[in-house]
Design a protein around this nucleic acid. Structure first.
Length: 280
DNA sequence: AAGAGACCCTGTTGGC
DNA sequence: TGCCAACAGGGTCTCT
């Protein structure tokens, strides 16, 4: 499920292929994945439009186009955007085909059909229902220890649901939230406002570290994720707790537990991530 | 403000 | 072994 490191990897692998290219034709095979405008207007609006560059905001991929428009893509869980150097017959679950200049194509695929594509004028990006409300980018300057020290004491929710709140931090999903909490030695249900100064510092460092490692390993492929070239990631080989229920904690060897927190399955080491505790 | 639950969707898993 | 219900998951929405 593409989170920040996976979307960043897709962006990097596609940037080389797409920057400067022109979209010649767009075929929508399953209209349900088009958020806005209508599927017809979506296809019309993209015809003969040049791609300037690619960007990313949280888990959104931004395809910046000429004429002040942006193609916004959210992959949700099983979305993929695959570049084909030549014309390729659409594989199962292919919902949108972009014909590019030359004979190459870009295929948007999504088994679960949760992913969405929007074609928006740049002026409308900040009004987009979720893109416009995203919180800080965890790998950029605005995400500081001081930001967390200011915000966490005011939050009455548990730390893991807060990490997943895209209006707070943009780009963390279930995998990297579990990993960051383990690296920081924090119980996922610890109230955000109870974190000590030292715990906040550890969490800040851990969030940046797990995301950077994820990017370095080209993302985590648990089942569906592939980058823009169709290549799987390697970070699944480095996971500490996520989806490792019953396996030994890499730090202390205790069996990893799993429980639902905020409706999401959560993996943690009951020894390294003690529940309440005063937290040093 | 925050949490729970429904919803979208389909491949996989677990129970019988 | 085979069938089917439950589950998984990100984000949005509604309700409490």
């Amino acid at each position: 499920m593409p989170e920040l490191p996976e979307v960043e990897t897709i962006k990097r692998t596609l940037e080389l292929k797409l920057a400067g290219r022109t979209i010649r034709e767009v075929t929508v095979l399953f209209p349900g994945v088009i958020g806005s405008p209508s599927p017809e207007q979506f296809a019309d609006g993209l015809r003969n439009v040049r791609v300037r560059r690619l960007g990313r905001r949280g888990k959104f991929l931004l395809v910046e186009l000429d004429a002040g428009q942006t193609l916004v893509i959210h992959f949700r869980m099983t979305g993929r955007l695959i570049y084909h150097p030549g014309k390729a017959p659409p594989a199962e679950h292919t919902h949108v085909v972009f014909d590019l200049d030359g004979d190459s194509q870009l295929h948007f695929m999504d088994t679960r059909k949760f992913g969405r594509l929007w074609l928006l004028p740049n002026s409308a990006l900040t009004q987009h229902s979720s893109l416009g409300k995203l919180g800080r980018e965890p790998l950029e300057e605005g995400f500081t220890r001081e930001f967390l020290r200011l915000e966490l004491p005011r939050r009455r929710t548990r730390i893991k649901p807060l990490l997943l709140d895209q209006t707070f931090i943009a780009g963390l999903g279930n995998i990297y939230a579990d990993e960051a909490l383990h690296l920081a030695g924090l119980h996922p249900e610890k109230p955000a406002q109870d974190l000590s100064f030292a715990e906040i510092s550890r969490l800040h460092r851990a969030i940046q570290r797990v995301l950077q490692d994820g990017i370095e390993h080209h993302g985590t492929t648990l089942r569906d994720y592939l980058d823009g070239a169709g290549t799987a990631g390697r970070h699944q080989d480095y996971l500490r707790v996520h989806r490792r229920t019953g396996l030994p904690c890499p730090v202390c060897g205790t069996r990893i537990s799993r429980k639902k927190v905020g409706g999401r399955s959560t993996h943690y080491c009951p020894c390294c991530q003690k529940d309440s505790g005063s937290g040093e």
